[in-house]
Design a protein around this nucleic acid. Structure first.
Lengths: 261, 261
DNA sequence: CGACTTTTCACCCGGTTAATCACAAAACTA
DNA sequence: TAGTTTTGTGATTAACCGGGTGAAAAGTCG
């Protein structure tokens, strides 16, 4: 979506600072001050391209956040806290925020989330699909059937598979390329493999999984027409849950046939 | 400053989600969906007070972020990822961002930060002052002289003092109330105390410290006139660094006199 | 006392987003 | 099937915020 311009450390830092809620001016001012360590409005303006008259606002913002100290002389001078201190500060703030959010969400969430879902749901973007995959793997009790292409063989997924094995879940890999098979074998030696009439990796495929015969997910890689052709194709998936869920029923049939052979 | 309205878990969650970059609608929609687990635009609109026709945009945003899956039926149905998954997601995102920022800032920062600063710098807000105090304590090589009132006896400061002791730094506490003295004695038994002619804790004081006779900081508690009188008074501090720094010189004189007695 | 520089302040402009409405398509009901 | 309600999309308006600019006030220096 956004081709975040991470060319230089400066813009990377500015980008993150803005994400953390600083205004563009404040972010650029702070970055300038970190490199200068200390300086006047003029100094800051020169290296940051922030209008001189606006440096003061930015400083107010930064001072309020405890990122900059001020020397009340004429001209005023500004001093940035060290990179290490700043990092620790954000680290703390973020972990605090996450914990507040976690508490609040746990509070809000109904105690029992139903496992069954009627219908078929969609997820887009590779990361979100991986999330859903690991979540489903995490819920597995008996058996996981999984097929994937190599590009999507994420470390997270392997971790989830391994911990499933440790819980005593049977893992069956099907129709994967030998590369994928080797890779998983290496990390999760307990995984079984089965042959499939078609090699999943040949098709413009993504992943295909079924867990405990009650949850299923299928994904494909799609090359977005008007997307940057340099970066990886995106992934889009559908999933369903419940004995009678239509996607589950279909996959169960396919796998039953495949697995019998 | 801001009396963040954390009355209810819902608003707390919304607040944090907005901080993490979601629009107000998206935040409220997500919170609603977490409590419903799944629902239609109408359902969401009813519990979240988001105009029904805007729920769809909010969902787009959330779907793009991988927080909500969509069931393409009519009416469309929306499903929120679990509170746990969501928390993990933000946790990850934030720690990633912090690490990017840290790398970038370390890159930008000049290799040697000068210890000496001309003039006297100001810091406002209690948290920022504590940051500066712990930073200065962390740089101590020989000796720390420290006075404080009880309200400002932060866990962070005590930690910093203890680790300074472990480095072989001499700690001297002066003019503190017996409560403060006991508290520190308990946690940092190696700390010495000295008597002062005035009891720092009697005045409308804050903290007063000098490190290695080269760095000094003084703070006071101020009750902001037009501030909420219910919450704690804020703190404002000045500090200076260097043998000849004016604040350092003054404090050195005072302490020399005090410590001799 | 001028000629600066520094600082504050007020304003404009553009983009974003909340908020409302209009309308067509779909689903439901009688 | 016709009529009514529900649902989804798009257009539109209004409010707000932040970036950008310049004028004026305060301070500094020769």
């Amino acid at each position: 979506m956004n081709t975040g311009s991470f060319d230089t450390p400066r813009s990377a830092a500015v980008e993150q600072l803005e994400q953390f809620g600083l205004s563009a001016y404040a972010a650029r001012t702070f970055v300038a001050l970190v490199s200068l360590e200390a300086g006047t409005a003029k100094d800051v303006s020169e290296v940051s391209d922030v209008p001189r008259t606006r440096v003061y606002d930015a400083i107010d913002e930064l001072h309020g956040r405890g990122l900059v100290d001020v020397r009340h002389s004429s001209p005023k001078e500004f001093w940035a806290i060290s990179a290490e201190t700043a990092s620790r500060k954000f680290e703390r703030e973020m972990s605090h925020r996450v914990s507040v959010l976690t508490t609040a969400l746990d509070d809000i969430e109904p105690t029992r989330r139903t496992e069954e879902q009627r219908g078929v749901w969609t997820v887009d973007e590779r990361e979100a699909v991986t999330d859903r995959v690991t979540e489903i793997i995490g819920d597995a009790d008996d058996e996981i059937v999984y097929m994937t292409v190599e590009e999507l063989l994420d470390e997270d997924v392997i971790d989830a598979l391994r911990s499933a094995v440790d819980r005593g879940v049977r893992i069956r890999l099907g129709g994967v390329s030998s590369d994928v098979r080797d890779r998983i074998r290496e990390e999760v030696p307990e995984a079984e493999t089965f042959d499939s009439i078609w090699l999943w990796s040949d098709t413009p495929a993504g992943r295909l999984m079924m867990v405990d015969e009650t949850r299923a997910l299928v994904s494909v890689l799609v090359d977005d027409e008007d997307a940057d052709p340099t970066d990886l194709p995106s992934e889009t998936a559908i999933w369903g849950s419940g004995e009678t869920n239509s996607l589950v029923v279909v996959l169960k049939a396919i796998f039953a046939w495949q697995l019998e052979r």
